[in-house]
Amino acid sequence: MNWEYIHKFLPLYEKAAGLTIKLGVIGILFAIIIGLACAVIQYYKIPVIRTIVAIYIELSRNTPLLVQLFFLYYGLPKVGISTNAETCGIVGLAFLGGSYMAESFRSGFEAIDQIQEESAMSLGMNTYQTMRYVILPQAVSISVPAFVANIIFLLKETSVFSAISLMDLMFTAKDLIGLYYKTTESLILLVVFYLLILLPVSMFGTWFERRVRYAGFGT
């Protein structure tokens, strides 16, 4: 083990981790918004849009992120839409994550009895209030385990960003291996950095799951 090497390239990894986190967080935030919107559309069974949502979900879930990224990065400029790598990464992650989030929220919505909605409406709540104060909080808290699993899955998926020349963790490790042949050190640093990102998320998820379960479940 070459500690000098590790010490020397640590800043590169830190920078790369920063990029992974930045793109991951922004992409996942958009994925959550898309997912919620899709789940609400499916809940209300809004005609036409509902079909579009269903098609999007199938398309997104059944194509690899790598292919989606290539399409965005190399495909769009061919039809005159200029793109940069970071935007492609974020859009790709949001496109992929949106469908996974939609599915996890949908299972939350489906677990709620229709009479809860009727109970809210009979208290004079309108459609928006019923959704905002009664349906959504329950649906979201039921989806939390699937939701947390999705976040971890999506953070791991960011490792394919290297394919469109984004200097994320994966890119940095591959690059350094190619340049200096210090495979062991490079890979150990790679694993350690992914763990540093993912372990806190996972631990927070476990804590959060327990919290919402305590508050909301087991009527």
Binding site: S119, M121, L123, G124, M125, Y133, Q138, A215, G216
Partner: peptide
């Protein structure tokens, strides 16, 4: 409708409290 429902209190067989 929502306005009118404010004036009609409904109590259901299975309570239908909001569990959260």
């Amino acid at each position: 409708l929502a306005k009118i429902r404010e004036k009609i209190g409904m109590v259901f067989q299975n309570y239908e409290l909001f569990p959260h």
